[in-house]
Design a protein around this nucleic acid. Structure first.
Lengths: 129, 129
DNA sequence: CGCTTGTTTCGACGACTGTCGATATCTGGT
DNA sequence: ACCAGATATCGACAGTCGTCGAAACAAGCG
């Protein structure tokens, strides 16, 4: 019944440049819809356990990892599964079963879409000059 | 009583290059501490109302705005104040009173620190060939 | 000094979230 | 067919979160 749709936050155009859901945070005020979409991304990474799981997978070989490899973050196995599901619903991960094991993989375009929300400026420090 | 300390997530070195709290998400598994710190940032932006307030301020002239300018996001004024406080505690905003009004300003270094958590790669699309 | 306007704090309430143990499902091997 | 290991789902529970109205606090003005 939950309306958790796995919207990938970026359009999978198959191109090199991703289509972010929203402009950079500093460009213009977000509409309610944009805020809703972008907030879902940030929220997904807004939990320490999820962040650890994500970095665990992202830094793993090939950007993917078996659940059995990342189940050691201090919470029970059901909780790990729960968080992986959340990340998957947020479009940040995909999963694939290979025999007995399930492998989670980083959805790189989604991550790239997120990165485009933040300005890449080298922190304009007015105190410098 | 709340242990909400406004840790700015990056070191205010006064330099052009900011000191991010953690390496990029894809570089290596975060420690529990790193995950805690980074999650706090993402969490702060993980609410639609906060995101709208933030973009409202960030896109405002000079990267700052009076509370009276941004109180129209669909929630009550106390709630706006509550969210602004949260963003401030996360180190993403600062506030300053000028006479009757209070101005909130984007803490650019914090934003830059966040941006360094996400890989700036142009989304490696394996389907491109 | 008291009124008005702008902003924050307080207290309460419902909703959501992270967590767990128990259980179900899936897969491969015996 | 059965069992064992891996993962997901379920149901429950405590804690957090977003929200509000009421009230407090701050600043300017008459």
């Amino acid at each position: 019944m939950s309306k958790t749709k796995a919207l990938p936050l970026i359009e999978s155009t198959g191109r090199q440049s991703v289509e972010p859901c929203c402009p950079p945070l500093t460009e213009r005020p977000f509409t309610a819809d944009e805020a809703e979409t972008a907030a879902r991304m940030f929220k997904a990474l807004g939990d320490p356990v999820r962040l650890r799981l994500f970095t665990l997978i992202a830094s793993h070989e090939g950007g993917e990892a078996c659940v059995c490899d990342i189940s050691d973050v201090g919470v029970s196995q059901p909780t790990v599964s729960h968080h992986l599901k959340k990340l998957k619903e947020a479009g940040l991960l995909t999963s694939e079963r290979r025999g007995t094991w399930v492998y989670y993989r980083v959805e790189a375009p989604a991550l790239a879409g997120m990165s485009q929300l933040l300005p890449h400026t080298p922190a304009p420090s007015p105190a410098s000059a």
